[in-house]
Write a protein that binds this DNA or RNA. Structure first.
Lengths: 300, 300
DNA sequence: TGCTGAGCTTAAGATTTCCCGATGCTCGAT
DNA sequence: ATCGAGCATCGGGAAATCTTAAGCTCAGCA
């Protein structure tokens, strides 16, 4: 197996034309260089230098090895610089995950602002719901995740992780304009016990939140439609298929639907967190976390 | 400065997910792997691994370094294979030089035959006259040269080199068909003492040979034209500008000129050699030298 | 022809590095 | 609560490496 220091030495021999020159270039004694080159020839199992008493020249095999060695030592130097740059924001890289609705007004703007300040920073994004994002951070597939959690649900296991609160998003009721309560502004959830409900498809998250809120209000919701994307949910409400409880920040005004504040049960909300690894103190991660916190403050 | 063995270790950690796995992959004890990785972190001046008591994971800097290290270790392995292959003809490479007129019927066919047998062999060719080719071989810029030398001229310094005779090319006189001797078949050079002569431009080679041959025949040639390319020389003879002494193998029949054997001075000839370095025993060089010798035998 | 110096190698000893086995620690799993 | 896997550390011995010194060979030169 070839050793990179010895390859450097061989390249230096090619460049300077002598072992003494190579030794000077790498800062060692000619004797050491000679010995190391002899070892390299043993490693390579080939004669690399043609020796005469007063000079050396590369053999055919030596030239071939030098040609291979040059990109290797260049790569080593580049690797050294890259890992040094990794200590700065610009040289770093960061893999971000967030749930879908957070990206529009929170994650994407924060990443954009970071990109403006650090154009060299290598940022990548993956859309992941919290139940996937948290293990992804823990297992190192992702460096930073933006997650959400409905009030009243158990917090995910945070061992080894560093969650930080970004904002709290109250849940509001979306109803068709044709609904009798559409003009009320403030409503109680139990007023909609008989209504058709639009909920999520998966057992996690949206669906569970809707059912729990309804049960807190004392009824079992009659689910008429299921969709995981809030945009689709709003379309279904607009089509008159039912009402839905959604995080306020996901609401986009459109004809035919109305957003109503919910007074009881109180404090129905979704909290949004940024999650990183406890052990990850890389400047890039820190910088994006700070950018997210700052951006979240403007949304509150 | 980063060490390649330690980089292999880091890559193995990335691949196996543990230091123990990496140690097993590289065939050392976990303790050694742990120590070497610690040294690598010192070398890189960065924390590469995030350690917990029971497991280890790459840090951000570690991932960056792994991404740089993969092509490096791949390159090292490739270099090892390449230098091993350099011991065979196919894996080798050979840089050939020859003077212009040898290439058509000697060097190019020999290289072509070698290519048929060893398509992988990396062959490159440079046109060099002997006075440049011999130093080029000695200094390692070229591995094999085909040179010529006019009989009676001093042999070039062959120290450190291995010249081998390929063929002897007699010199013949080329005259216009209009010449009074054009029908003679055999001529003496002194019969052309009064003729106009076509010779070379440089003091080396062709020009010196013409002048020396004339002096051997007892006259000083009257040079009417100078050209270094034998094709041009033949054209000039055809145009009636004079006569010329050329190696027979360079003669290409064309209308208007005639090739005459020269009886005196005797043994006017050019010898052609293949020159390699004494110390160069690479299979590729040997193979091409053999191919040249074989090809030359068919031309004799 | 013999001297001189440059450049390479070898030798020997000292120092550093490296590796292994043992030990202790932590944490997840049973 | 115990066990076991995986990592770090420690200590000693082995191996590699470096340095200095000496020897060798050859080119250049008087």
């Amino acid at each position: 197996m070839l050793d990179s220091y010895r390859l450097r030495l061989l390249v230096a021999v090619a460049d300077t034309g002598s072992i003494a020159g190579a030794a000077a270039a790498l800062g060692c004694s000619p004797a050491a260089a000679s010995q190391q080159l002899a070892v390299l020839e043993r490693e390579a199992e080939a004669q690399l230098l043609e020796r005469s008493a007063r000079s050396v020249r590369l053999s055919s095999a030596g030239r071939i090895l030098v040609d291979h060695a040059r990109p290797i030592v260049a790569g080593l130097d580049r690797a050294g610089r890259a890992v040094a740059a990794a200590g700065t924001v610009d040289g770093g890289r960061i893999r971000v995950a967030s749930f879908a609705t957070a990206s529009r007004r929170l994650v994407a703007p924060a990443m954009a602002s970071l990109r403006r300040r650090h154009p060299q920073l290598d940022q990548t994004f993956t859309e992941l719901e919290p139940e996937d994002a948290v293990p992804a951070v823990r297992e190192g597939r992702v460096d930073l995740a933006v997650t959400h959690q409905y009030a009243g649900f158990p917090a995910p296991d945070a061992r080894g992780l560093h969650p930080e609160h970004l904002l709290t998003d109250p849940l509001s009721l979306v109803v068709p304009v044709s609904d009798p309560h559409a003009g009320d502004g403030q409503v109680r959830l139990e007023d909609f016990a008989a209504a058709g409900w639009i909920s999520g498809r998966s057992t996690q998250g949206f669906q569970a939140m809707t059912e729990m809120a309804a049960r807190l209000a004392g009824f079992e919701p009659r689910i008429t439609s299921r969709a995981d994307s809030y945009g689709v949910v709003l379309n279904l409400v607009g089509a008159g298929l039912g009402v839905a409880l959604v995080p306020r920040s996901t609401f986009v005004a459109r004809p035919g639907i109305v957003l109503l504040n919910v007074t009881t049960p109180a404090r129905l909300a979704r909290t949004v967190h940024v999650v990183t690894r406890d052990s990850d103190h890389s400047p890039a991660v820190r910088a994006l976390r700070d950018a997210l916190i700052k951006k979240a403050a403007t949304l509150r």
